[in-house]
């Protein structure tokens, strides 16, 4: 396999594919007391159904903001966005995505199980269905046995896993994950990476995934978006085609290292923008 076979620059997408996220010339400026903050500028991005897209870039470059715009938690100040062909607000009201925040955001008065069933309660699912889904999702993140515990009785990493379980139980086709594994140790992180990859391969969900870790981005993604420091721009989009049933072993292969190298080069180029 040559490098070219693995890595391709983005070709203009064929219109026939199902486009989940379609962003054109999107900008976002925060008006603050000390003047405007240009968080995102002129972002163009397409995410197709079934893709696993990672966003990587220096801290404060607007990764979270971009995800929040997709989730309709923030309004873009310019450009066009369509999610599943409709506005972000409509998409949110259709409950078309599950969101994992950078912090666990568990409600302290609810047990782990009832935290996981919270969205299902709001969707007015039956009690049996709620419990069934919660059980399944907690098993996936290996938190079975902790259903009745309260968030403050769990470690930080366990809390984050519970919040992932909550997003999974929601079972939306689009998963937005903001550094979900940032607080976890290497071993657990590897394990959850594999679990997430398996889930993705099995369910054909679309995933938008923010990370700081180059190996994590390369291992998980079918597409890596490299962003520049503020104002956040997309400076490189790298497509990979590792087999869907890849294991952690591929991290030793030359192809993997090549892609990682290109991501690192992109990040470095982005930084020289500043000087």
């Amino acid at each position: 396999m040559t490098l070219q076979a693995v890595v391709n620059n983005v070709a203009p997408m064929a219109a026939s594919k199902d486009v989940v996220v379609d962003i054109q010339k999107m900008s976002l400026t925060f008006q603050t007391a000390d003047g405007p903050v240009y968080a995102l500028s002129e972002v163009d991005l397409t995410i197709n159904k079934g893709e696993f897209v990672s966003f990587i870039g220096p801290s404060g470059c607007g990764k979270t903001t971009l995800l929040r715009v997709i989730a309709d938690l923030e309004r873009a100040t310019g450009g066009d966005i369509l999610i599943n062909g409709v506005s972000p607000q409509q998409a949110r009201e259709d409950r078309s995505y599950g969101y994992v925040f950078q912090a666990p955001a568990l409600l302290p008065w609810r047990s782990i199980e009832r935290n996981v069933t919270l969205p299902l309660e709001i969707m007015e699912l039956s009690k049996e269905e709620r419990l069934r889904r919660a059980h399944e999702a907690l098993k996936l993140v290996e938190l079975n046995g902790f259903e009745k515990k309260f968030p403050w009785q769990l470690s930080g990493g366990m809390q984050q896993r519970a919040s992932i379980a909550r997003a999974l139980s929601f079972d939306a086709d689009l998963l937005l994950m903001d550094e979900p594994f940032g607080a976890l140790d290497e071993i657990v992180r590897d394990h959850l990476n594999e679990q997430l990859l398996k889930l993705w391969a099995r369910t054909n969900k679309t995933v938008a995934f923010v990370t700081h870790s180059i190996p994590e981005a390369v291992f998980l993604s079918s597409k890596i978006v490299v962003m520049s420091p503020r104002p956040g721009r997309i400076i490189d989009v790298i497509e990979t085609d590792f087999a869907k049933d890849r294991t952690l072993d591929i991290r030793e292969t030359p192809e993997f290292l090549e892609v990682a190298h290109r991501v690192r080069e992109g990040l470095r180029a982005g930084h020289s923008y500043d000087d």
């Binding site: 929040r68 989730a71 309709d72 938690l73 949110r92 009201e93 259709d94 409950r95 995505y97 599950g98 969101y99 925040f101 912090a103 955001a105 409600l107 008065w109 919270l118 969205p119 309660e121 709001i122 969707m123 929601f170």
Partner: peptide
């Protein structure tokens, strides 16, 4: 953060009131 969480579930005013704000 918690309010944003409820927003991602498209939780209505009363649902958010009883599930998040009053507790």
């Amino acid at each position: 953060l918690e309010k944003d969480l409820m927003a991602t579930y498209a939780s209505g005013y009363w649902s958010t009131l009883f599930r998040l704000r009053l507790p």
